[in-house]
Amino acid sequence: MTLHARRRIVNHVALSLSILATAFGLFWLGWLLWTLLDNGLSWITPRLFIESTPPPGSQGGLANALFGSAILTIAGVAIGAPAGVLAGTYLAEFGRTSRLGAAVRFVNDILLSAPSIIVGVFVYALIVLKTGHFSGWAGAVALALIVLPVVVRTTENMMRLVPDSLREAAAALGAPMWKITLRVVYRSALPGIMTGVLLGTARISGETAPLLFTALNNQFWSTDMTRPFPNLPTVIFQFAMSPYEDWQHLAWAAALLITASILAINIVARILLRRARP
């Protein structure tokens, strides 16, 4: 075989394998989504949104878990996002070269990729053990700790994209630093910051591990955040692992709902991001 022929063959084989690898990756996405639609779609009925989770062997819905998840997610974002935006502001505006800035940036990366179950264990030891019982607030704090690093990272990146000449122009007009940040930098970085908040929301919507020992679960409708709180991921975990068929159907329906909403949030975030960086 000539060198030329060998190089051509190696090239073809390698590139074919790469295309195969891409198909392999996309194949799982297709299969997963198909499974969810196939198993979940027929169980999505009005009843799902009206009735609470049933005891074994009887029918019911997911209303309490849907409501509980929405509240937990909103509370998590409401705690985590403002803190994240301010910390990101520090990194982008004040701490670009400071020692605190470097340390926070590094630690934020650690928090960003730390296993979410560790966050659950941390909040358990910090809040659940101290208060003596599982509670919705503990769940919200755990979720907030997961939103936090996502928002810090995107806020810093997006504020850095705002050209310094804009800041200097505002400063030249006599605007104080806080006004420059609020009125000029935030305004132009807003779509990007929103993207970060949305991505954080998407990330915690399906998080299960940190809720297992913080919010736990609640079979009934509950609005009391100081008690165990119903939520969709834990319902999926319990119901899917159960031997009862009704419960398993509900778990599939819940899985479809969660995945669909997360994919929707991701797509909205992408559209926002595109507008943020033309």
């Binding site: 301010l86 004040f94 605190l100 030891a125 910090l126 630093m177 806080w178």
Partner: peptide, 27 residues
């Protein structure tokens, strides 16, 4: 006002640091 704003932002940045330290200490 500027110093207050800066201190506020720095406090939340420090919160990130404290969170990770807290995890380590609690564990």
């Amino acid at each position: 006002a500027d110093q207050l704003f800066r201190a506020l932002a720095a406090a939340f940045a420090a919160l990130v640091l404290l969170a990770v330290l807290g995890v380590l200490i609690v564990l």
